[in-house]
Amino acid sequence: MARRKKVYEGKAKILYEGPEPGTLVQYFKDDATAFNAEKKATIDGKGVLNNRLSEFFMNGLASVGVPTHFIRRLNMREQLIRSVEIIPLEIIVRNVAAGSLSKRLGIEEGTPLPRPIIEFCYKDDKLGDPLVAEEHIIAFGWASQQDLDDIVALALRVNDFLSGCMLAVGIKLIDFKIEVGRIWENDFPRLILADEISPDSCRLWDIETGKKLDKDVFRHDLGDLADAYTEVARRLGVLPANSAPLTRPKLIN
């Protein structure tokens, strides 16, 4: 069997050439990173959980009319996706003050924001994904004004959907990050949701206790990351209520 051609490898995922033109296979790794990859670890089962959770969210978003790159899940760690031209921005939607926003503006973590705030970061690991303004984005040609209007509208739709999903299972959506890609249909560009949606890319707090159920557990040594992600998956019905945390498969002699 011929080896698949690797197209790209990031901190948490690997992209391989897909079986058909215009497709890719997205593989979810067990690697966990924080603080621009200064802190690293391998968390057994993390990739499996993120694959299943991202599938759940992408399918849910598609059902309410949000276009995504997701086609179908292939196995425990892989999904088939559409190949897109990624816009080099991280789009951050904030509902509650936390993380870098609290540090930059001196707002206490947990303070509800008067409305969802959307921030843009330039995707460049070497630069630490710096915060940029719309003027930078347009001046440097990363996206047009129409693109930005479409991105903001898409991000707010994703926020409405995710907030409702989480609220229904006792979780508060603090903030999240998405990426957007461009596809071409009959020579016309169209923007769609890309990358992933998982606890790796969201801040999720238990409504009653404030317990963190996202990558902050790893960032700040608050417990077992796989347990936190498993709890999110159980509440959403992605995993059975009595399931144990997922681990790597073991070989039996």
Results as ranks from 00 to 15, higher is better:
I178K: 04
D30M: 05
Q79E: 14
K250W: 00
I81K: 00
K212G: 04
E185D: 12
L148C: 11
V169T: 07
V84G: 03
I137N: 04
T230I: 07
T230F: 07
N75F: 02
L131P: 12
T230G: 10
R235V: 03
D31V: 05
E119L: 13
T33Y: 01
R72H: 01
G18H: 12
D214N: 08
R203T: 09
R52S: 12
T68A: 10
K5N: 10
L74G: 07
Y8K: 12
D30N: 15
L101R: 06
I178Y: 00
I81H: 02
L204R: 08
E134V: 14
T42K: 15
S102E: 05
L15M: 12
E134H: 07
D150T: 02
L204G: 06
D175A: 09
S198V: 11
R73Y: 03
I87E: 01
D125L: 08
A194W: 00
Y16I: 06
A34K: 01
K123Y: 01
R77N: 15
V180I: 15
K103D: 12
L204F: 09
W184E: 11
E55C: 10
C165Y: 09
E90D: 01
G106M: 06
E55T: 15
N59W: 05
F188Y: 07
L80M: 12
R3G: 14
R94H: 04
Q79I: 05
L191R: 00
F35I: 08
V158D: 01
F56P: 01
A37T: 14
G60M: 04
W184F: 13
Q26E: 15
Q79M: 15
N95E: 03
P240N: 09
S63G: 05
S54N: 08
N59T: 10
T230E: 10
E208S: 13
E17K: 11
L246N: 03
V217H: 09
A244G: 02
G141E: 03
A194I: 07
E55M: 08
